[in-house]
Nucleic acid binder design. Sequence first.
DNA 1: TGTAAATATGCAATCGATTGCGCACAATTC
DNA 2: GAATTGTGCGCAATCGATTGCATATTTACA
Lengths: 343, 343
Amino acid sequence: MATIHDIAKELNITASTVSRALNNHPRISEATKKAVLKVAKRLNYQPNHIAAALRNGRSNIIGIIVPTADRSFFGSVIRGIEEVAKRAHYNVMICQSHDDYESEVSTVEALLNARVDGIMASFAKNTENFDHFKKVHDKGIPLILFDRSFSGLDVSQVVIDDYLGAYQATEHLIQQGCRRIAHFTSVKKISIYKERLRGYKEALEAYNIPYRSELVLESYLQFEDGIEGLNRLLDLEEWPDAIFSASAYSAVAALAACKERGIAVPNQIAIVGFANEAFTSFCDPPMSTVDQQSMQIGTAAAEIFLEQITVGRDRFVPKRIVLTPELIIRKSSLKNPMKFSEK
Amino acid sequence: MATIHDIAKELNITASTVSRALNNHPRISEATKKAVLKVAKRLNYQPNHIAAALRNGRSNIIGIIVPTADRSFFGSVIRGIEEVAKRAHYNVMICQSHDDYESEVSTVEALLNARVDGIMASFAKNTENFDHFKKVHDKGIPLILFDRSFSGLDVSQVVIDDYLGAYQATEHLIQQGCRRIAHFTSVKKISIYKERLRGYKEALEAYNIPYRSELVLESYLQFEDGIEGLNRLLDLEEWPDAIFSASAYSAVAALAACKERGIAVPNQIAIVGFANEAFTSFCDPPMSTVDQQSMQIGTAAAEIFLEQITVGRDRFVPKRIVLTPELIIRKSSLKNPMKFSEK
DNA sequence: TGTAAATATGCAATCGATTGCGCACAATTC
DNA sequence: GAATTGTGCGCAATCGATTGCATATTTACA
């Protein structure tokens, strides 16, 4: 592969000049620039970013850590990040933690070794120690947390207002006439679930509906957990008349289980999920859900990164961006179709 | 950040020795190795992969080009690649072409500049010129195409047997008693669609069902295309009694449109899709579909890459791996539930 | 015409890790 | 005891691009 030295040799100039010419340095004559460009093209020159990265101390790579890449939510976030990053000539490097703490730690290590210029991450579910992220931040590498975040670190964050989303979802169910509203939640240490639970609770309180702990089930919110959850709810003496799930998968699972048992949705049990995965709109009845603005999360995160890079690590103040989720009402929670327009 | 030179200074040895010690070179005494490791830990040493990459000519990064990252299929492929790659200490760099040729070309350029050790790609829909990929191959950089591939390049490929998948899907519809089977196809230059069309045709032929061009609709297979497609089919004098779609989105769209119009699925129109996106199992009725083995595509691609790396570019013969798709029969195409077990 | 200013380019060090070669010293062999 | 083999480590070049400083050549202006 051709290097700037090869180009230099051809033109009887030095590599310095070639480098400057390629970077459009003002002190290089137009004639030389043109000549360099021409030879570069002829030799099929490809700049070696690795060499430049070593010299500059910048790799122009952003590291992304997600629990898993094959979920529509994270896919969209990644897409958002990549879109903004590319415009500023950054590439993204994706790593999956598989929702495992150990793996997350080693992934952070790997990204540091790869000398990424910044890291954007959403925690693994069992991450409780944040030293590995503290290390990133201490090294002065921009760190932006999204979705599953943690306020104990003085870093930027992009989240949605989970509290609001949950509050609105619950309120919506109440307005539909539901009074025994169950809630599927997850690991309480993760703030998004804590916030969603809080939104649920406060909505109940606002409407003078007593909070019943037997209606709140904690799990990993997978598909199976939704089925199991519904079964547990149906074992209660008094059935719930609605479920607000903190995840899309367990919501759809509950819906499927209801159908299997011949329970009418939404009339016997109304259901609202969280995360606007593609499948939520295709199930029957279509699932009401809280849209998480996934793509915007990505673009916002990337923009914060760019800002931090340009402002400089010293003068940059960590930002916390809270996006407003959108309650999407579909038939799974709509007892009176006349009152609302369907989306 | 600490370098091997810092460690060397602390121990009054040279960087060479430190490097060898860290790489567990046999000519370094155990005592020295231990000492180096100890100081490395104390100084919080992080190897600089960029420096190593420059020196070694290997970045340990695999570049991936997908049309878009936020589709479950590509997400799974990426996941598969990453899983295998990580074990061999490779990282992956994701780029999206947004199904646009120009963008794909510049992405390839970017990956070459980043000096990735290999590229895995699925074409953009409008890619018809393959020079940019030929260039990759000519430079001796392992290139593995998956899903949307092209046999005119002498590179490795991982695909599924689209013909077989389509044949089985169509045959299944025929066995359900369907005789006027429509087909949603896409850009014919892309082999996967050509193959699916071929499978469809040959299945018809095998059962002596005439091929009717008015039942074969070409589009980009997005959600809207599915709705439009159904409308066009219903404009025909004689309605189809089944649809085999080359994509999941347009299949689900057709299903939704049928429901809207009060057309019974599967009894009036049976539907089978392609690509086992999560939502296909959640819609109503659950959608029969051809599973593409997405994760295996990823792992297979990564394994080919590793083999090519170890075997060496000269002695490596491009491989073509054809995975067998799996027809998943669900209710959207099951006119006689007694005869088949549901999945 | 002489000199300061502007222009165009070269020199050489640098980023951090790797590695072929060589040298010293120790262990082993005959 | 001399010769051979083995062990442990240092020297210095290398990967390719970048950049502060120096230098050479022009241009401009008094």
